[in-house]
């Protein structure tokens, strides 16, 4: 395996006040690494959507970002309820978020679609009742 930098974040569940902290920190890290603004934007948006999903649906989880020479890999792992119907969840506008979450401006049904749109590859492994692991890749250059 080639050399890579790992950034690990624990995402606090049900805490909408600090939601996005991991993504904001990762954005700073990417700036320090000198990555291009476009790459930083893509990774930040995809990671934020994943982070918010973990807060809304899964009581938190773990986010790992691995920076390789040619790509950035974002791995989001939670022990939440899993996704019952991935095809439905991938549709723009579909959301199972509750009214409280919607009142905060979330629950637009754009989380997974945005993650797919802003990354070059998105893999979702999910087991209902056990959890979800999402692996996203953004290629550099």
């Amino acid at each position: 395996m080639s050399e890579f930098l790992n950034f690990h974040f624990d995402v606090d569940g049900d805490n909408f006040v600090s939601a996005g902290q991991a993504s904001v920190q990762m954005k700073k890290n990417m700036r320090q690494l000198g990555l291009s603004p476009e790459i930083i934007r893509k990774v930040s948006i995809a990671m934020y959507e994943g982070e918010i999903n973990m807060v809304i649906h899964a009581h938190g989880g773990a986010a790992d970002v691995n920076v390789y020479e040619d790509r950035i890999e974002i791995i989001l792992d939670d022990k939440g309820p899993g996704i019952k119907d991935i095809d439905l969840a991938m549709q723009e506008g579909y959301s199972t978020a509750n009214d409280h979450v919607r009142a905060l401006g979330f629950g637009a049904g754009m989380g997974l679609p945005n993650m797919k749109r802003y990354t070059d590859d998105t893999q979702i492994e999910t087991v209902v009742g056990e959890g979800t692991k999402i692996t996203m890749i953004v290629y550099l250059g």
Binding site: F16, S23, V24
Partner: peptide, 15 residues
């Protein structure tokens, strides 16, 4: 018109 804490993170991340 959204004014909760999350607008700061969204503004920062979306540049």
């Amino acid at each position: 018109i959204m004014s909760n804490i999350n607008i700061a993170a969204v503004a920062a991340l979306s540049d």
